[in-house]
């Protein structure tokens, strides 16, 4: 059982000033997940009659994309995974006993409370074109279009994005390019996405800018922080799609 010195961001509301708050968290087992360590802290706070630290989390299986902490300066902490799939043995093994916890910080992700941020900007980017316009009921047979396996696999790799926002939090510019490019690339690699590929890339990039996400300067920190290892190749695909939509043939 280990003890950790934790500093965690507290902010009572969107317009309040925040600060780092210190806690000693005792009795932590290496098999506990990072969020179970926070549960433990919160249970202590509640017993003392204090408000627990607010943080987003839901599935705790690394797939819903809700959890979102910057841990010792890294989005989702030291491993290539989501915060909920990070285990305390990762700190134990490296003799790390001080942990700083902050929210994902970006202008486009305003803080709601403590470590909870508003990532609805991502939803609005998808709403602006991250879909195939097909109404329920008018699809052809699923096997009508054969899609070469390598293309389908590339589309899948991009579609694995969980929309957590770690790419934005990790980027010096708070750019959302990796997120946006993952969706553009997913649909651009499939025949189903072809009809709308010009409008899609334009509209999504415009919305991304409007939401206040920064520009991409090819740091690559987004890929390093991404729990699903979404590749920056997708950003190249996005750039190609963007240019193609302006100068390429119309069909």
């Amino acid at each position: 059982m280990a003890t950790y010195k934790v500093k965690i961001w507290r902010q009572s509301g969107p317009n309040a000033n925040g600060h780092m708050e210190r806690h000693i968290v005792k009795g932590i087992d290496g098999d506990m997940s990072f969020l179970e360590m926070l549960d433990h802290l919160n249970e202590d706070l509640e017993e003392q009659g204090k408000e627990p630290v607010a943080f987003d989390h839901d599935c705790r299986e690394g797939i819903c994309g809700a959890c979102s902490l910057v841990i010792n300066g890294q989005a989702h902490g030291p491993e290539t995974t989501t915060t909920c799939q990070l285990h305390m043995r990762s700190f134990e093994e490296h003799n790390v006993s001080e942990i700083d916890i902050e929210p994902f910080r970006a202008t486009a992700f305003p803080i709601i409370k403590d470590c909870v941020v508003d990532r609805s900007g991502f939803d609005r980017v998808i709403q602006s074109g991250g879909f195939v316009s097909v109404n329920t009921g008018n699809a052809p047979d699923a096997n009508a279009n054969a899609i070469p396996k390598p293309e389908a696999d590339t589309a899948f790799d991009a579609a694995a994005c969980i929309g957590c926002g770690a790419c934005v939090a990790a980027c010096k510019n708070a750019s959302a390019m990796l997120f946006v490019s993952a969706k553009v690339s997913h649909l651009a690699h499939l025949p189903q996405g072809d009809a709308e590929r010009r409008e899609r890339v334009h509209s999504m990039v415009n919305t991304m800018d409007k939401e206040g996400f920064g520009s991409c300067t090819n740091y690559g920190e987004c890929e390093a922080a991404c729990p699903k290892s979404i590749s920056t190749d997708n950003i190249a695909t996005l750039n190609r799609e963007f240019i193609r939509s302006k100068v390429g043939p119309t069909t």
Binding site: N138, A139, I147, A155, F156, G193
Partner: peptide, 13 residues
């Protein structure tokens, strides 16, 4: 299945 494929769901192939 037809509808999901039309939406671009990347099923295994």
């Amino acid at each position: 299945i037809d509808h999901c494929v039309a939406q671009g769901v990347p099923f295994a192939r």
